[in-house]
Amino acid sequence: MTREAALNAALFVALIGTALVAQALGEGFIITLATKAAIFALAGVGLNLVLGYGGLVSFGHAAFFGLGGYATGILASHAMSGVPVATLPFTLNGSTEMLAIWPLAIAASGLAALAIGALSLRTSGVYFIMVTLAFAQMIYYLAISWPAYGGEDGLSFYVRNTFPGLNTFDPIQFFAICAGLLAAALGLVAVLTRSRFGLALRAARQNESRVVAVGIRPYSIRLLAFMLSGMIVGLAGSLYADLNRFVSPAMLSWHMSGEIMVFVILGGVGRLFGPVAGALAYIALEHLLGGVSDYWQALLGLLLLAIVIYAPGGLIGLIAGRRHV
């Protein structure tokens, strides 16, 4: 076991352990925090696919996070009112079943990622950053000004959606669902990055012309990665909606995009468990520093600056050493 692998295992144990200890102590809110960390880590894992492995700096992943959340909120609210979401081209009824909601949330964010990616990937570098940001902002304003699903006010659905065999109202059981999905996503990304697709994605980042020379179109590879990334982030958004039983345009805001990016970079870009470390650290900082000072975000900002300038490998890079690329 390498040092990084040991660290990865320790991180996952820390996440699960926090929740279990909190459960034993009856600290429901700590479980909620651990759940939030797991969900944010999942979003980070999604973004890491394009950011870390693909070298594509997307500043618009809140769009997919929010779309996953809105898909969940819309389905749940329609299930309560009994009105179908759509009748054309086929009847789509609301649902409060997570197993029915997830595929739709993933599909919605995947489609959006396909459309946004197709346009944004025509550009590169700093244009790509701004264009992804602008498209996310466009969806944000659409959500604010479209009154059907609450607009600015957001959409409450009061009751967490259900999962067969589990009581999702019980914080620890909902945590188990989120942690399970996080593990699954980590597994998926681990497999993907070792596959031919993953190799091509990384090669396109390092040397685009060589990839073209062996007959692979970097554009298609990147678009596929962008879409997969959007789908994972969309699933995280769906879970986040269930955690709060509420969705609002804030999930789509550019601060959210920045935060997802912070999870990845704080932990370590392009490291499988980077987002897990980053999300855990972020939630812990928010909870601990938030208690010390109302201005905790200023401290977070200074910490981020220090990491960018002195420790570009993130937390995992600090502990496990530089990667051998």
């Binding site: 006010d153 509420f246 609002s248 804030a250 999930m251």
Partner: peptide
Amino acid sequence: PDVAVQIAD
């Protein structure tokens, strides 16, 4: 609203 929900929780 999202901050209010989290504080209430």
